[in-house]
Design a protein around this nucleic acid. Structure first.
Lengths: 233, 233
DNA sequence: GAATTCTGTCACGAGAATGTCACTTTAGGA
DNA sequence: TCCTAAAGTGACATTCTCGTGACAGAATTC
């Protein structure tokens, strides 16, 4: 029968832009949701959990950056890929957008074909960090489930706090490679968290405690950072 | 197996519009009920519990928004999918409609084919939130019956208010996964309900009270939201 | 209309999560 | 072996978060 179509949410205050995107995205096989302002977009995003969100940076009242930040803040919407539309290719805007977590950029005026291509590219990335379907990542005996925010080891639930969960999640997702304290700070705590790097140490310690014997899997790489190993020793 | 024809209620004060929809919906295999004004529509809806309601936004005396609000308010009719007909594509109207819980929109003048497609789409969504056939969902010992708006635990009826029922219903339907306060607000209270997120806490508290010992099943996930567990502890 | 129930908000307090610091221990080069 | 910088550890202050009871307005019921 019919393949399930991926849903794309377009948030832009200009009807013309919405129409242009709507027709092109539909032609490309997407289901299109629309919102005319930031607040509405946010509400629909939370409610519908689209596969991709196209977000205009410049909107009255609630800017794209604000919407983006709000989306990134909480779980169900925090991993939805976001494509930003910017009026001008101002480098500042780009930076501002990336800082709050946009995944890609298109500057107005854009060619519809280009947008469709980028949406596809960004949507394809999804399997890595799926939203609707809970993702199970594994590192040795550790399993993570973002939807439930539970981590298990050997089938046993760990009572992690949200920070600990995000920390372990990042380490799991990048098993085997060293993560510097700076990287961990910016990825786990957020872009503008101005924290002491030693804070990471404390959380690693608490995490190790809760991991019990498996705490040894979190290896300290002197002078560089931390790394999660699959095998002990 | 003979498929039962689904009934669609058309509420519109213009006879022409009713006729147009009637013929097209019948041709598409639906049984059509009709009402010429809001009050009559409301009465028929309650009595007949159609699968879908098509509602004209602009009607003398009782507007579509009022009818919608009234329908949404109480159980047997509260989950019937509603398709709104709007005279103009005014953004304000759209928002007003979504706020009271319409499921989809068609702007006049419309193509009958489009309306039929949307009715099908909206009706198809039903299994998720069945109306005519009572759905029994279970989480541990809890059973929910939407048609009667009763929840039982261990065979014992709970005297839940409608808000409490919808809250529990959502948690039951998504057992095990965390629901943020924002999600709960938008799904239980409706689209743009502009409420304090702490309101959720209060209702969770009241729900837990009525659940008695099973109240423990409603777990608080600090910093994230609430989650219904199947097993205690 | 009066009484009752339902709802949303608030303020308070307990407890949890978090970030920082001072102190101790360890790794690894000289 | 010794020395120093880096990392581990425990304690603490602060900030958040959530549970709770009270209350006022709205909606329902009688």
């Amino acid at each position: 029968m019919e393949a399930m179509r991926e849903r794309v949410l377009v948030v832009d205050d200009e009807p013309d832009v919405r129409m242009l995107l709507r027709t092109n995205l539909r032609a490309a096989g997407f289901d299109v949701l629309e919102a005319a302002n930031g607040a509405e977009g946010l509400a629909i995003a939370k409610h519908e959990l689209p596969a991709v969100i196209i977000l205009d940076l410049m909107m009255p009242e609630m800017s794209g950056v604000e919407v983006c930040r709000a989306l990134r803040k909480h779980p169900p919407t925090s991993r939805i890929p976001i494509l930003m539309l910017t009026a001008k290719a101002a480098e500042e805007e780009k930076v501002a957008g990336f800082e709050v977590g946009a995944d890609d950029y298109v500057t107005k005026p854009f060619s519809p074909r280009e947008v469709v291509l980028r949406v596809r590219a960004v949507a394809r990335r999804k399997p890595d960090q799926g939203v609707s379907k809970p993702i199970l990542a594994r590192a040795g005996l550790i399993t993570m489930d973002r939807a439930e925010m539970t981590a298990t080891i050997g089938g046993k639930k760990l009572g992690l706090t949200s920070t600990e969960f995000r920390l372990l999640e990042l380490l799991v997702r990048r098993v085997g490679s060293i993560q510097s304290r700076e990287t961990l700070l910016s990825e786990v705590w957020g872009y503008q968290a101005n924290l002491d790097t030693r804070t990471v140490d404390t959380h690693v310690r608490r995490l190790r405690e809760k991991l019990g014997r498996a705490g040894r899997l979190v290896e300290t790489v002197r002078g560089s950072g931390y790394r999660l190993n699959t095998t002990e020793g």
